[in-house]
Amino acid sequence: MELKKKPRSEGYWFYFFNTIILILFSLLIVVPIWNILVSSVSSNAGLASGGLMLWPKDFTFQNYTKVFSDSSIPKAFGISILKTVIGAGTHTVFCAIVAYALSKSRLIGRKFYTTMGVITMYFGGGMIPTYLLIKSLGLLDTFWVYIIPALFSYYDCVILMNFFREIPASLEESAKIDGASEWKIFADIYLPLTKPALATIILFNGVGQWNDFMTTKLYITKQYLYPLQMKIYEIIVQSNLSSMTQSGSTDVIFKATTRGVQLATIVITTVPILIIYPLLQKHFIAGMMEGAVKE
C-alpha cells in the first residue's frame, strides 16, 4: 500500500509545482506584453513615464488608425500572406525531399553533400555578390525573389534528417518488399510520421518569411510588392528620420512617429501569427495523440 501511495503524492507535488512555476513564468511574459498592448491604445501622454501601466490611459485607437491610414496596407498584408504561405510550403517540401535522401546512410556521396551543406551555414559571399547573382537570375523586382532564394536551408535540413532517422527501418523495408519506390516511401510513410517536425519547419520558415523585410529592402523597388513588414519598417524609421533632420534646415519638420504608433505596429504584425498558430499547434498535439493511439 505504502509503495503505491508514494509515487502518487510525488506526482501530485510535481504537477502542483509545475503548474505554479508555469503560471509565474507566463506572468513574467504576459505583464510586459500587456503593458505594450495597453500602451498601444493609450494616448501618448501616458507613455512618457515608463511606469507600471496596467490599464489604458485615455483609451483611443488613434495609433491604429494612423497605421491603417496608409491605403496600401491591406495590399501589403496580402503580399505578406502570399509569400508566407507559398514560401513556407515550398521550402518545407523542398527541404524534406533533400533531407530524406541525406538521412539514408547508404546514399553514395553523403559525406560530401553534408560537408557542402555545413559550409553553407558558416560561409557566405556577403551582400554584393548575392545581389549580382539575384540580378543575373532576373529575380530583381519579382515576387519570386521571396520564394526561390529561400527554398532551401541546410539548418532545416539537419533538423528533418534527425527526425527521419528515428523512423524504424523495418517500415521502409517492408514497403520495399511490396515494391514501393523511394518517392512513395517518402510520401506515404515518412511524411505522415514526422508531422510535428514538418509543422516545426513550417512554423520556423513561415515566421521568418512573415518577419523578413531585408529581402524587400535589397531586391524590390516596386511598391506593390511590398509586404506588411516593409511598410511597418518605413513607419518605424520615420521617427529616426526626424532626428536626422535636426542637422538639416529649419523648415524641414517631419511629424515623428510616436511610441504609441510603434507599439501599434508591433501588435498588428503579431496578431495574425497568433491567429494562425493554433492551426499548427494542432499538429504538434496531433503527433502526440497519434503516437498514443498507434502503440
Binding site: 501618448n44 501622454a45 507613455l47 521617427s239 512617429t257 511610441r259
Partner: peptide, 13 residues
C-alpha cells in the same frame, strides 16, 4: 530615446 523625450517636452517635464 526620441519618442520618450518628445513626450516629456510635450508635457513640460
Amino acid at each position: 530615446d526620441g519618442a520618450t523625450y518628445d513626450q516629456k517636452v510635450k508635457q513640460g517635464d
